[in-house]
């Protein structure tokens, strides 16, 4: 892809695209994200269809605390920014800065997950269990699936940090980091729709 000149033995400018394998990984990951879009789309569709079916359970307007959601959103947006900084550090070949930014991203992800667990725990105490109503089932499925993706991302990036520490930044490890960064942004994109469709629209009575 890049016709630039490179010094022998030196890591290329964009190491994630330096090999055919790396470029194929990025392309394949985009197609995977297309599939993920469909997965979340169906969950969103189910939620939209069922969100007014609350039966005897609490209504969304009653349940949601926008303050908590705002904090969670801020955390996740910031983690998206820190993962961009990680990729930029990678392009500058600064492995140490790259690892540090990834660690910050993971910590922010953990903070988000902690808030979500607290939120779910709180809802269950208020009588909003998984089987309470069609609204609660679709809510937990949609938001829980997103939370599971965050958890998976945290584990994934943690493993990448360990690998980076052991093997350093090479044309093999670079595509992995790049693809993990894309995954993290995608999670953020899904959250944008969750806070809009689930929380904010739930508050509009």
């Amino acid at each position: 892809m890049s016709a630039h000149t490179h010094t022998e033995g030196q890591l290329p400018h964009e190491p994630e695209k330096a090999t055919l394998e790396g470029r194929n990984k990025v392309l394949g990951f985009w197609l995977f994200l297309g599939g993920e879009t469909v997965l979340f789309g169906t969950l969103f569709a189910a939620f939209l269809a069922l969100r007014d079916s609350v039966m005897d359970g609490p209504t969304p307007d009653h349940l949601f605390d926008l303050g908590l959601v705002a904090i969670a959103t801020a955390i996740l947006l910031t983690s998206s920014l820190t993962s961009v900084f990680a990729i930029q550090a990678m392009h500058r070949h600064e492995t140490k800065a790259l690892i540090n930014w990834l660690i910050i991203t993971v910590l922010l992800g953990l903070g988000f997950l902690g808030l979500e667990i607290y939120e779910f725990y709180h809802y269950v105490l208020e009588g909003h269990g998984f089987t309470t109503s069609a609204f609660s089932s679709s809510f937990y499925t949609l938001v829980g699936f997103h939370g599971a993706h965050v958890l998976f991302g945290i584990l994934w990036i943690t493993l990448l940090i360990i690998q980076l520490k052991r093997k350093g930044l090479t044309v093999v490890t670079a595509p992995k980091v790049y693809v993990a960064g894309m995954y993290w942004h995608f999670i953020d994109v899904v959250w944008v729709f969750i806070f809009t469709v689930v929380y904010l629209m739930g508050k509009v009575v």
């Binding site: 392309l27 297309g34 879009t37 569709a45 189910a46 939209l48």
Partner: peptide, 25 residues
């Protein structure tokens, strides 16, 4: 540059999503 397939991948996902959402709503 070079993200044409990425855009096609995501857009085909988005197309199915819109179908699903409109169907459900």
């Amino acid at each position: 540059r070079g993200h044409r397939f990425a855009i096609i991948g995501i857009l085909s996902g988005v197309f199915i999503v819109f179908t699903c959402v409109i169907m459900a709503e």
